[in-house]
């Protein structure tokens, strides 16, 4: 599914179709183009997994916050200001020594936008959506993640408007770190369940 066939000034078929659509809707006065730009900018630059990382890091470093997050994630995440579209009803699920959580939306692409931003292509793809519920260990293997055979894997299929955020395990060697420093260890994939948080030694490496 190659999305971009742009060669020089020649428009790809999708680019042409979408321009035509935007042209008529603009001429009809159905939206303000500046509002579209603002929507794009919000999702491209303002909302992303840095938000979720702040939530996780605070849960790691503040036991009272962790309890609030596990009891009522919508309220606890709203405390940090991450509210709104596709994050109205949040559930936080915590990884432990015995349990690993994995989030999927088999039916489309449901994803906690205010905390994680727009989902990556693989999350919306047939390989992930088809296998995450049937063969989660195989899917984790695609991400290079091998968990102990006896660890319980809880898969959450986002079939309603509840949006799931995984709280990964806090890496060893981070005693005394404050929330800001801890947040640097929290990757997007660790909050979906397809990865673990970085160790202090992995800081500065790609997610």
């Amino acid at each position: 599914m190659d999305d971009d066939h742009d060669h020089g000034s020649e428009l790809s078929p999708m680019e042409a179709k979408v321009r035509a659509l935007e042209t008529i809707l603009t001429e009809k006065g159905y939206f303000d183009r500046k509002a579209l730009d603002e929507i794009v900018e919000t999702y491209e630059t303002k909302i992303g997994p840095r938000n979720g990382a702040k939530v996780v890091a605070l849960a790691w470093s503040d036991e009272a916050y962790r309890e609030r997050l596990l009891t009522d994630a919508s309220e606890a995440i709203a405390e940090l200001g991450f509210t709104g579209r596709q994050g109205e009803h949040m559930v936080a699920v915590e990884n432990t020594e015995q349990v690993h959580n994995l989030v999927v939306c088999t039916l489309c692409s449901c994803y906690p936008l205010p905390t994680l931003g727009l989902p990556p292509v693989w999350y919306k793809s047939a390989p992930y959506r088809s296998r995450a519920v049937m063969d989660p260990r195989g899917v984790l293997g695609d991400f290079g993640l091998k968990l102990p055979d006896n660890i319980e894997i809880r898969v959450w299929d986002s079939t309603a408007e509840m949006r799931y955020l995984v709280i990964p395990r806090r890496p060893a060697g981070t005693d005394g770190w404050d929330a800001e420093r801890l947040a640097e260890l929290v990757t997007r994939d660790s909050m979906i369940g397809t990865g673990l948080a970085k160790t202090p030694a992995q800081l500065g490496t790609p997610s």
């Binding site: 979408v18 321009r19 659509l21 509002a35 579209l36 730009d37 794009v40 292509v121 693989w122 790609p206």
Partner: peptide, 22 residues
């Protein structure tokens, strides 16, 4: 297999931005 893209951009083409926003 699932094929994650390293350092994936939020959008892969300008028209994707416009479709989402519209």
């Amino acid at each position: 297999p699932v094929e994650p893209e390293a350092n994936e951009p939020v959008f892969h083409a300008e028209w994707e931005r416009r479709v989402l926003a519209m």
